[in-house]
Design a protein around this nucleic acid. Structure first.
Lengths: 153, 153
DNA sequence: TCCATATAGATGCAACTGCATCAATATGGA
DNA sequence: TCCATATTGATGCAGTTGCATCTATATGGA
């Protein structure tokens, strides 16, 4: 069984929550003020833009750690807005393939400067570059494999 | 105006999102499986338990970075469940004072072991103690004052 | 081939969140 | 004192999320 966490682990978790909530609030507020769509929309657009062949919804789901039903409806809205296109998958009769539209690319480009400034405000402003890098590294460790001995199941 | 963020800042932000989402998912899943209330309930209970004189809703709001309307309704639910009590504030006729009930304390104590194990699973398992401490420190910097020169307003 | 089981994605319904706004009290001048 | 403005907390309504479940296709084994 998993053990009790040390004090520093508990503190790290508590601050992860707080820091995330604060930063997210800043970012969402800036986007809203600028009349731009939600952060999640940006993330979807970016993933789709990076994937040359488009993506299957379940791939996007894993990439974004988004709940299946949630993503399904997010795509509904984004398709309705004309930013993504759904096409039946050719490999799998159950599935579909998503791609970004021209106007999806356009809106993503329009979001970025506002988003970037918000990131700088919420994160960059508070840390040196080296610190940001250390932070990124440590946070990166929080997915995937645990730290030590325990064989991967 | 705020400047463009460096690459490491953007990476730190992206991982903050991912790490938080992953960790939160783990924690919420463990609580749910155990048939226990939401994480937010725990946070409220803990804050109230720490405050000897109880707390005003707006204080809780700041402590938790929770939206006002959101907290208002959260307290509704928790009061309905019998975990918190509302009393009219004596200093301020508009306000109220919240306190934790006996059964609120009881449920908080019941939640903790499950929550602790989840924190260890989501965070502790992946980091050494020193790393956890560094992470906590860096995350702690993300609220409040910016890093350097810029006078506070 | 046929069936049991797994995977992809959608959806009805209840709960929760965000937004806008409201009522009530407090506060600080003129 | 009186009024303009700020603060505390609640709430109607629309939009989103979570849960459970459903349909359809895929896959692997007997």
């Amino acid at each position: 069984m998993t053990n009790r966490p040390s004090d520093s682990v508990v503190r790290a978790w508590a601050r992860l929550e707080r820091a995330h909530r604060a930063a997210l609030a800043t970012v969402e507020a800036r986007l809203k003020t600028a009349g731009l769509p939600d952060l999640a929309w940006y993330d979807v657009l970016l993933e789709l833009e990076r994937a040359d062949e488009g993506l299957r919804p379940f791939e996007l789901q894993k990439a974004m750690l988004f709940a299946q039903y949630n993503l399904s409806r997010l795509i509904d809205r984004m398709a309705a807005a004309g930013y993504v296109a759904r096409a039946a998958s050719e490999e799998d009769g159950r599935g579909q393939r998503l791609s970004i539209t021209r106007s999806g690319r356009a809106i993503r480009r329009r979001i970025w400067p506002v988003y970037a400034a918000a990131i700088e405000e919420a994160v960059g402003r508070h840390l040196s570059d080296t610190e940001a890098q250390t932070l990124a590294d440590l946070l990166g460790r929080l997915h995937d494999a645990p730290r030590s001995g325990a064989p991967p199941a």
